[in-house]
Design a protein around this nucleic acid. Structure first.
Lengths: 247, 247
DNA sequence: CGCAGAATTGATACATCTCAAGCTGGGTGG
DNA sequence: CCACCCAGCTTGAGATGTATCAATTCTGCG
């Protein structure tokens, strides 16, 4: 029940997110300075790392695991506004209060930097600022794609889109598989999916069942999803399919 | 019918967006270098500045007017993913293709920079990169607030939220008015509002009528909106009202 | 084994969409 | 000067997708 199961100070050079995180553009000497101010923290699934409105005096990169960013209205309606995967960045330089709740979905390991030293370092290290700008622009693109999903897609299209995104991510990490065939773990509960897609969990459940009964997907245990034909899944997303290549 | 009604090269120092745009952090000498590569373009209401997928070899700041960013699905469903007001930035350094359609909602004047020289200048001018990062983070926050609206708010709450945003902006520009009382021009048609809010134009029309008949707003001509009591409007947004101050 | 959290399934309610008429105001041409 | 026109807007009636409320049924685990 400890909040910190693993606190260690690894060498940055063999870090699994070395090539994608906010530090990816850094030269060896810049990396050394980052290494001086970093520390690791780990969280259990379900644990809330930060509450919206709370003081937040660190920024961090997700090293492993999945976390979610959520906003909640007074009456309890909640909307997920971001899904944080390994290498994603949390926190905003120059702002001392969190804008969202951040919650671990699976066990999560974070590489943290106290905010002030990080901001100072960022001023002297354009490589960090440049990479952060690039990552923020990517997140903005993703958020806008999500706006289209939330505003205009049907429940079925929403589910298919979420599955397609997860499938694509899996395919880009693992070596290529048989044409159009992908399997992956979906780390979200039905409720978390609903919060992401702007639906109720019952609707999510019904649409997943429907996709399954039509053979678009197969369920393997509670979290496993098998997509026998990725192009077929893509057709259900409502997006431009342009051939339907996995990557 | 000319696409460029006004092409001139004003001094940056008396530019109306000098203190808020991407150039706001620049020192006088940095401004001079920007001035060398800038040029103005103006567009009429309804004109499309850029089509999604097209080559885009400039970036720009909105000097005056309103433009919209939209995404469209194959079957014609469209979602607005950004509303560009004076000082907002268009285009992405490092990317040569537009991700969205950009359309003028009112007559628009843009301050443009060819992309390559701008990128070069940005590398040598941290003040530009820093400001662009800050603006992008703000846009990301706005996009995430919009995700909550699209995913979880009712039609009435959506309309009230949009009006509240426009009212707030008006109040922050003009000197303060009588307590809680604001009037402003809404530059969007019912259809554009619908595209922004993820609704149909009929639903927008009905909800606007309903807010009017209940005295939350008053319509003045086609575009004028009068909010007699801002706190009352805020109650309809579903957000935390925390007293309901205009700014 | 049996419990608790997660997921499924069913019946019904309701918000929003869809289709279809009209209305309104400003501009145009006869 | 007036009739007409048209885009934008409003309003109505009915269809429909998703939410809501309510049982069950799974699944993993102590």
């Amino acid at each position: 029940m400890s909040t910190q199961e693993l606190v260690f100070s690894k060498d940055c050079s063999d870090c699994p997110i070395r090539h994608r995180a906010v530090c990816s553009r850094c030269e060896p000497d810049e990396l050394l300075r980052l290494e001086e101010i970093k520390y690791y923290r780990s969280y259990e699934a379900g644990q809330t790392l930060v509450w919206s409105g709370d003081r937040m005096d660190f920024v961090a990169s997700v090293v492993s695991g999945v976390a979610k960013l959520t906003q909640t209205m007074e009456d309890g309606r909640t909307q997920m506004v971001g899904l944080l995967l390994p290498s994603d960045f949390v926190g905003r330089p120059g702002r001392d209060r969190a804008s969202y709740d951040v919650t671990a979905v699976t066990p999560v390991l974070m590489c943290c930097f106290r905010r002030k030293p990080f901001e100072d370092l960022m001023e002297r290290t354009p490589h960090i600022a440049t990479r952060l700008l690039e990552m923020t622009l990517d997140e903005l693109d993703a958020a806008r794609e999500w706006m289209l999903l939330l505003g205009r897609k049907t429940a079925r299209e929403k589910i298919a889109s979420l599955l397609a995104i997860m499938a694509r991510r899996e395919a880009s990490e693992r070596p290529a598989r048989a044409r159009g065939r992908v399997a992956f773990e979906l780390p979200l509960t039905r409720e978390a999916m609903a919060d992401y897609l702007g639906l109720t969990l019952e609707t999510v459940s019904r649409q997943v069942s429907s996709l399954k009964s039509e053979g678009v997907i197969e369920l393997e245990g509670k979290r496993g999803i098998m997509v026998p034909d990725f192009a077929r899944l893509l057709e259900e997303t409502g997006d431009d399919t342009d051939g339907g290549h996995l990557i």
